[in-house]
Design a protein around this nucleic acid. Structure first.
Lengths: 252, 252
DNA sequence: CGTTGTCTTGATTACGCTCAACTCAGGTGG
DNA sequence: CCACCTGAGTTGAGCGTAATCAAGACAACG
């Protein structure tokens, strides 16, 4: 398929420079590319968990159902993300995963992770770093859900999406596509769909965010970040010092 | 110090059986044992993040401050836990960590993690598994904070604490010490201290939980789990099949 | 015995939920 | 081409859970 155009390689390259062997190893994770339709389920809670997925294109999200019928979206995945990392320790899926868009995913077995651990110290470290980063993302969301108002929740999430998109796509403008419905946003943020709508109204009255269908415009990024009390150190991860030293050691 | 009595070894042994070399490697993480007082800060947000901590005794918690003065407790650490795993990918601390009790902690540098990656595939996998497990814990808390009522939040947290304590201390009864103040509970659960108090009152009127000072009694564990809609699959992790196969491969 | 910190209780307020009706755009079929 | 349907989003009214503020109880401690 695409060579060098691999999302996962550009994702990993963001953490440390990769040797040819390491690139090959990563590419091998993307062997079984399969197209998948918008709305399709990747897997369900309780299914055997024995593989990860890399997301080559399209968006996806993981979610859980509660007994009362509510749904909580746990993570939103963008192209280049690895899906199911969290479940490495488990025999069964803890979360449902569903496509938002049409997309392409590549399955690879948990066992393959052990190959990585065995063959490349830098990749092992990056894997760990990526996992830490997802966790930091989640932590930040937890704080937001626990303690902030609806408008701050929205502002925070939207700004986070902007930053994450910019990370893989540096020339993104302050207008971009956000293919989530208001109901899905509500399920991310622990709000009701009705209140998401009201909050959008308020935010656009204050000229912080404009939403038209699935397109979002943020006229003043800094204003939005302030509204969200956004502290971006959890996204500006910095593993390079450590990993560079680890490469040197590995080379010795 | 204590041999075989190491909390971290018993923590890891829970995931897979360890060779003598691996035990030595783990023991080496516990070299710099230092006593630390109740209420003392292990580190603060923004400090350089270059080491982990294992908690040998005592309880600790990590937390974040918000601009309005609110505080959110992110994680509660019990003896045997590793503190700061999440920050492996970061140059700076993202969270404050403070002792709840008097305790003993052992610092070890991030670099040491690379030694583990290099020297032991099983330990690498277990590290990854433990990290996944913390993440699962956090995910479950996120769902609870986002979607459940105050009584369910309380019930869920208390039952989770019971299960986690039982994991390292299998003969725990339905009465145990929980050294958290109501204010700290509030900061875990995203509630006000006042409402925590009211909720305790309700829960004990319904004979679900009795709290006396720092001691907790749960007369009917199953009833509490039901109230919390507790799904314990996120705690009954099951890595053994994978790790056993990885040990075999490593042996070859 | 007074001080301090933790917890309890009461009164009031507010944020976000629910339910329901309505708008609007896009798609479909007659 | 228009009529209808559908799904997403908007708006209003009323309600409920938990927050806030404030006063008081209680225990531990010096």
């Amino acid at each position: 398929m695409g060579q060098e155009k691999s999302c996962i390689i550009s994702h990993f390259s963001h953490y440390c420079s990769l040797s040819e062997d390491e690139k090959k190893l990563l590419m091998s994770l993307e062997e079984n590319a399969t197209a998948i339709k918008s709305g399709a389920l990747l897997w369900e809670v309780g299914a055997p968990a024995n593989e990860f997925c890399t997301l080559k294109s399209g968006w996806a999200y993981s979610y859980r159902h509660l007994e009362n019928g509510d749904r909580q979206i746990l993570e939103v995945f963008l192209p280049g993300d690895i899906i199911g990392l969290r479940e490495f320790a488990f025999a069964e899926r803890l979360e449902n995963v569903r496509m938002i868009d049409d997309g392409v995913v590549c399955h690879f077995p948990h066992r393959r992770m052990l190959d990585i651990f065995r063959q490349s110290l830098p990749l092992t470290s990056v894997m760990f770093a990526i996992s830490s980063r997802y966790q930091a993302l989640m932590t930040e969301r937890l704080v937001t859900l626990a303690r902030r108002s609806a408008r701050q929740k929205m502002a925070h999430f939207l700004y986070e999406m902007y930053l994450r998109l910019r990370q893989t796509n540096p020339d993104i403008s302050n207008q971009f596509r956000l293919p989530l419905s208001q109901e899905q946003l509500a399920d991310v943020l622990g709000l009701s769909p009705v209140h998401v709508s009201r909050t959008f109204t308020v935010l656009s009255e204050e000229e912080l965010v404009f939403r038209d269908r699935h397109y979002l415009t943020i006229p003043d990024l800094q204003a939005l970040a302030n509204e969200a009390e956004f502290d971006d150190c959890y996204l500006t991860d910095n593993v390079r010092p450590l990993l560079d030293s680890c490469e040197q050691k590995a080379a010795c």
